[in-house]
Each structure stands twice: as C-alpha cells, then as structure tokens.
Design a protein around this nucleic acid. Structure first.
Lengths: 179, 179
DNA sequence: TCTCTCATGTAAGATGTTACATGATTGA
DNA sequence: TCAATCATGTAACATCTTACATGAGAGA
C-alpha cells in the first residue's frame, strides 16, 4: 500500500496539486522508485479523499481538482515513515532466465547478457542526463533526489559488471567443456 | 506471466515433479528470482495442464500429482527464452522513503540507512552460506546458480556501500546546515 | 475552427497475498 | 496413537495493467 504514501508524501512536500500534476511526477522522478499509472493515481486520490487523508482544496478549469493533505494524512505519512520499510519480494525476469541457462545454447546465453549490457548502458546514460539536469539548474540539489539517483547509478554499474563477469564465466566454462 | 515459465523451466530441467516439490524450489533457490506462494503454484499448474503445456504423468499417495512438460510446453519455454526479457517496473519501499527524507528529522533518516545496512548485511550472510553450501557439496556447481547467486551478492554489496555513502551525505549536509 | 494538451474517470482482466480448509501417510 | 509432514485446493481481497471513454480550454 505504498502508492498512497507516495501521494501523501508529494502533497506534504509541496503545494496542493491536481492528479494530473502528481501523475507527471510519477512519470518522471518517482518512476524509478514507485511507478504508477494514470488509472491508479486517480483512483487512489479518490480513495484518500474518501478516507479524509486528503481534501479537495480548490477546483479549476476542466474539472481540475487540487488536493491538499489533511492532518490525518500527515499522521498517516509520518507513521509510515517511522515504520521499518517492508521488503516486498523482487521479481526479475532476467534473473529467472539465468536459472534456465542450461536449456539454451551457449551462444544464446552470451547474447542474453550482451543485450543486458546494452540495456543497462542506455539506462546509465539516461540517469547521467538526469544528474546533469538537476545539478545544472542552479537549484540547491535536493539531497533526497541525489541519494535516490545515486542508487540507480550504482545499481546500473553493478549490473553491467555482473553481466560482463557472467559472459567471462560462460567463456571459461565453454573452454572446460571443449576438453 | 513469468510464473508459468518458471514452472515450465523447472519441469524441463529435471524429472517430473509434484506441485509440492516445485513449491520447495520456489521457497529456496527461486525465491530470489521469482518468489511464488503455494496458492499461486497450484493454480498455475492446473492452468498449464488445462492448456496442455504440462500433463499429469503419475499419481502418488495423498492425491499427489506428478507433472511432466509436454512438447507444447517445451516450445512455449523456448519461445520465452528466445524473447528479450521484459523489465517490469521495480517498486522499492526503501527508495520511495528516500524521496521523502526531508519530511523527517535527520536522525531518523540516519537510522533508516543504518537499519538498511543491518538488513543487507544479514542478507549477505545468508547468500554466503548458500554459496558455501553449493560449492561444498561436491556437485559440479551449476553455472546458472553461480551466476544468479553472484548477482545477489553484488547487489547486496552495492546496497551496503550506497547506504553508508548516504549516511556520509547526510552528515555532510548537516554540517553545512549548522553554519 | 481545429488540434493539442489538460483533466478525470471507469471497466475488465491479470497477478499476487493471506487465510482458510481438508485429508492422507509416515514414523516415533 | 499421535504429531509432523506431505499434498492439494478454494475464496476473498489487494494491487496493477491496459484499454476505453469523455469533455473542456488554449492557442494557432
């Protein structure tokens, strides 16, 4: 149930905002921590409003609704932040394939890791551009964003080195095989 | 829809197996790549059997059903392995909290990362024990398992260093604050 | 006027979690 | 005999994805 906490957190940080605006945050910065779809955001906002954790603070053109966090909402947010993070099980399509590597030819396995390297390099590039953007705009860089971004960069680097190491392992075991 | 591919992969690797046996694999090695509950495994096995991708190859005591992969199942598995892995969006409760660090006192933030270090260290320990177990049992270590395990170890190491770095960042910014 | 962006909503279906329910077999 | 393990199933609920639907306002 962290989607609601993400919404509460955003509304606590800034001024009241509409679902449309919050959605843009989910599509940009928050996409790397807790992605959510339009459908989810709008539904959850209505649920939060029903429960009194947020309220409609203003109505705008085109049916726009600005939401503000309530006292109850602030308490819910703080309770969540004080609780230890729950590690939800992580599912990785990539890692699952690794378990079945012996079901495919070695060449295809190498290809799998090579493709992974490509993907990760692209991801690294994307994150580096964000890093440049946020450090270049003159704002005092929010420490939160910096730390989250650093996580992404380190993870990408780790994955890249791992995939390269895996290819080496495949090559080494292929040599052994040939004897 | 990777749960079904995990099941097909397991049945392709080894001899026919029962849901109960497959479940144990999900609780041990596969838990780190694609965790699944008892409820999910049994339902999916029935669905796969309905679709003809696996068949009941033997009946045992206590209503035990051994499943074997079919030709259609093997094709489905190979099609999946040949397709590029899909990166499903990753949701991290921890990372989400990082985005709202400015909503809590610095001490609590430090505590968050310190607790993370503890958790990750425990995880590292767990994985190292597995590494010792599989390298010590005399079997020729499956390259698949080695590569998957290495991913976990590297990820843990990365997270640990990141969390420590984050604490340093907090300390540094706290100093700036005090001036 | 006409298109693009703003703005919100609903519905169907896939996937995952938690809890409950049931009973057979094995070994101490 | 009695407890632990083996063995499968269902139901309710939470969450997430994809697609469809609708319309107002802003600017060329």
């Amino acid at each position: 149930m962290s989607l609601r906490h993400a919404l509460l957190g955003l509304l606590d940080d800034d001024q009241p905002a509409s679902g449309y605006e919050l959605l843009k945050v989910f599509d940009s910065s928050l996409a790397n921590a807790w992605p959510a779809t339009q459908s989810q955001v709008y539904s959850e906002l209505n649920r939060l409003a029903d429960e009194g954790l947020i309220t409609v603070s203003a109505l705008g053109p085109r049916g726009r609704k600005d939401y503000a966090i309530t006292v109850d909402g602030k308490r819910a947010l703080r309770d969540w932040l004080a609780a230890p993070p729950v590690d939800k099980p992580v599912r990785s399509d990539m890692l699952l394939r690794v378990f079945f590597l012996n079901s495919i030819p070695v060449d295809q396995a190498r290809e799998l890791f090579a493709a992974r390297c490509e993907r990760v390099r692209a991801e690294q590039e994307r994150l580096r551009e964000i890093a440049v953007a946020i450090s270049g705009n003159g704002d005092p860089i929010s420490i939160d964003g910096r730390i989250a971004l650093e996580f992404g960069l380190r993870k990408a680097q780790m994955e890249l080195e791992w995939a390269e190491w895996a290819i080496d392992q495949l090559n080494a075991s292929a040599v052994v095989w040939r004897r």
